[in-house]
Simulated assay, not measured.
Amino acid sequence: MAKWGEGDSRWIVEEREDGHNLNDWHWVEKNIVPWCKTEVANRFKDLTIYDGPLGQFKFTGLKNLDGSICAHVRRGRRFVMYEYNMSFDWSGRLVQEDGSIEVKGTVKIPYMGDENDFDDFEFEVSVDGKGAKAKGIVHQECKKVLKKAVKEFMEYMNTKWTEGPIKSDSQSEIKRCTLKNEEQSSQSSSSVKAAASSQVTNSSSKSKSGVKNKDLTQKVTLNGPVQMIFSTFLDKDRLSAFTQSETHIDPKVGGAFKLFSGNVTGEFLEIVPEKKIVQKWRFSDWKPDVYSTVTLTFESSSQTIIKLSQNNIPADDLNRTKEGWNRFYWNNFRNIFGGNIGSFM
């Protein structure tokens, strides 16, 4: 293969000036929180909550939007992952028997996660000072107005960021390239797939006979809700995003899974929602009768604590297994949620 800057220019891979991600193959991640803040602020400014005989109340602006909202592109797939909270200011006039009074307060959505439907969320209403009756009216009317507005925003966000080009703002983004020759493009695609496969498997098959097995344990702490983190291990699309690889999952006891384009395979032995996952697990180059057992337990407090235990690992694959957990799982989870990756024991 010609080196960069050498050989026939028709076969040279070049970075595209337009930044186009050819066939959406490369991993691209875009922080869209700033865009979301602007969009939400525009949609909610002066949005009427209630206008009737009991008074008039409206949203006056976005108070805050905090969390993680990212648009992703990977291997021809586009998706948005999010976990955030937001709150709004509201104000108005409450009609009383002796006249009307000015009231104001806050509406807060404490959690929005991509495991929920767009209108599946809880909200809280508070009022500053007097006006308990106004709080009740706003809460009742927000069941319709707030959920409708948020759902429309989420649907628009999801459509906008899963169509058209997405340019990453990450410094570590893989350079996007194109080829000047269609035949070379086909060869390059095969090379990329082979490289992705080699990230998990060794170049040569090893004999496992007579090799003593090893165990490993590890504790990982993540700053995210246990519901979202647990469900990621059972969701094909989200696990593909986190591991940046092709994934097939049948999330039930007895269901099979294939990870990293089939280089890791196995079966679910036990699933306890938000508590525990047990898997029969193997690398594809192990002998057919060789399996290890993976147990993941989940604990929820202010953070999510994951305890990993993997038993019966062929000794000469212990380091490869450790590297895989850190490189393809925990580092990516930590990049999204934040947290701490403990050492293997």
Rank of each mutant, 00 (worst) to 15 (best):
E152M: 11
F328P: 00
C70T: 12
D250W: 00
D285T: 13
S309F: 01
W281K: 01
L62F: 02
F233E: 08
D289V: 08
L62R: 04
F118D: 11
N213I: 06
S240L: 11
Q310N: 08
L269R: 13
T178C: 09
V272N: 09
I336R: 12
I69E: 06
P110R: 02
V103S: 02
K151F: 00
F260L: 07
T321K: 02
N158K: 10
S91Y: 02
G224V: 02
I306N: 01
P165D: 12
N31C: 09
C177I: 13
V192S: 06
R43Y: 05
T293C: 01
R327F: 00
P251G: 06
N181A: 00
G52C: 06
G5A: 02
F344I: 10
G5M: 02
T201R: 07
K276V: 06
E183I: 06
G342L: 03
V278I: 07
K151I: 00
E173M: 14
V125L: 04
M154W: 05
K147P: 05
N263S: 15
M154L: 14
R238T: 12
E163S: 15
S240T: 11
G266A: 05
Q171P: 05
V95Q: 10
K219M: 09
V278W: 00
L318H: 01
C70S: 13
F121L: 00
K280I: 03
F337L: 12
I277D: 03
Q96K: 14
V103W: 00
D289H: 12
K258T: 08
S9H: 03
R327Q: 12
Y82C: 11
G92P: 03
N85P: 00
D51C: 06
C142M: 06
S204Y: 08
K144L: 10
N311H: 05
K252M: 09
C177Y: 15
G7S: 01
K307L: 01
F79P: 02
G67E: 07
S191A: 13
G7R: 00
N213Q: 08
V264P: 06
G262S: 06
A149L: 07
Q244M: 15
T247C: 14
T38N: 12
S245W: 10
R282M: 05
E29L: 11
I69W: 11
N31M: 09
K206W: 10
E102Y: 15
T217M: 01
E122P: 03
P288H: 02
F333D: 08
Q56A: 14
C36D: 04
M1A: 11
L216H: 01
K287S: 14
S205R: 15
S189Y: 12
K276D: 04
S309E: 03
K151G: 03
P110W: 04
F283M: 11
E182G: 00
T106S: 04
E122G: 15
L94T: 04
T201S: 14
N319F: 04
C36M: 13
S170C: 14
S68E: 13
E274Y: 15
Q56K: 14
G262F: 12
G92Y: 11
F79S: 14
P53F: 08
W4H: 04
T217R: 03
E141A: 15
V200H: 03
Q303H: 10
R43A: 09
A149Q: 12
K287D: 13
E124V: 10
F57M: 10
I69A: 12
V125G: 01
V73I: 14
M345P: 07
Y329E: 01
V107P: 00
K130T: 09
F337N: 11
S172D: 13
Q199V: 08
